[in-house]
Amino acid sequence: MIFLGCGFLFAFLRRYGFSSIAFNLLIAAVGVQWAVIVNGLLLNFQDGFVQINLMSVVTATMSIVSVLISAGVLLGKVNPVQLIFMTIVEVTAMATNRWIVTEFLRIDSHVAMMNVHIFGAYFGLTIAWLHTQPILATEIKRSKERSEPVSDLFSMIGALFLWMFFPSFNSMLVQNIAEKKNAVYNTYFALAVSAVTAFSMSAMTSKNGKLNMNHIRNAALAGGVIISFSAYMIQFPWIAMTLGLLAGIVSVHGLNYIQTCLNSVFEMHDTCGVHATFGLPGILGGAAHAILLLTSPWEDFTTLGYHALVHVGALCFTLFLSIGVGLITGIILKFKWWRAPQDWKYFDDQAYWEFPHLARKL
């Protein structure tokens, strides 16, 4: 999911395929190593040593999702050195968030991990607001941001890979066997409904009734995001399916309207539509989790109300921390020593890669 799924998902830009896939590998490889260290110091430190085992490596790899989501916002507008710096900062901030949420708010570890969607989306959007130029000036520059059939096909392969294995992400850290099975089943239900909804809403919102590949690959994944917090606890499939329906509707409308609004009004350019795919569904999923806690039949209302309030507090803390750290990171990334690409080099592999077949002989 991390190295193949996310890499190909962001390979839709017609002149940025090399960088989309390879830079994904670079920041994921760097981030996993750093996450093992940071998570070990904060969460797995015993007897003066960082405890490393299979689960710590899996947890570190899952933590990288937030970085890859943020990189999707900034795709094509920053250089590899900036991405590596952003990775180190975000992994540290995300690990700190998990440590505070689990140690002080007593949120379960697998629920705290699902904050990666929200953290990554709003961390990246905050950097984009400060760092990148939101509206490209000429039609030639805008054309680089477009896709072509081959690049869209590669991107859809990544989306399919994520779609198939999303249940493993939502269930990996769940310890109870029955709850782990619930997480798998409910994630598949939500994903299936969000995929069908993506096709329906794409055709309904199009002027000529045709499908938009951007809607399909993004909105089909939104069901896995919205169900991530509560997949383990849902006992009835219709609840998961309803959340999947809501995610598909919100994601398609977010891609159609909110993404344009972010760019033109708030000057916050989101290359991959991360806000509609991960940000909004993540917030809705967190809110749904709090509501489901209030309706749980196993405890009295006072206890349930306290748990729901704590989860809402954890959600708000994640948002504030992601935006706060994103502001600091965005300010640092504006310094000239990074040699950030100019807007006329956005979304173009030739700024970073050799193309022997395009070289001219003297």
Rank of each mutant, 00 (worst) to 15 (best):
F12V: 07
R15H: 15
S20N: 05
I21C: 05
L43D: 10
F49Y: 14
N53V: 15
V65F: 02
L68N: 00
I69V: 14
G72Y: 01
L83C: 12
M86T: 02
T87W: 00
V91C: 00
T96R: 09
V101R: 04
A112V: 04
V116E: 04
F119V: 11
A121K: 03
T126R: 02
W129I: 15
H131N: 10
S143P: 00
R146P: 00
L153F: 03
I157Y: 03
F161L: 03
M164P: 01
A178Q: 13
A198V: 14
M204I: 14
K210W: 15
R217V: 14
N218L: 06
A219R: 02
L221Y: 07
I226H: 04
Y232Q: 05
L246N: 06
L246Y: 06
A247Q: 02
V252Q: 02
Y257C: 11
C261R: 03
N263A: 15
F266M: 04
D270N: 11
G273Y: 04
V274L: 03
H275C: 05
A276P: 00
A276T: 01
L284F: 10
G286N: 14
I291F: 09
T295I: 04
F301I: 12
S322R: 05
G324T: 07
G326N: 08
G326E: 01
G330I: 08
I332L: 15
I332S: 11
P341C: 08
Q342A: 14
Q342Y: 10
Y352P: 00
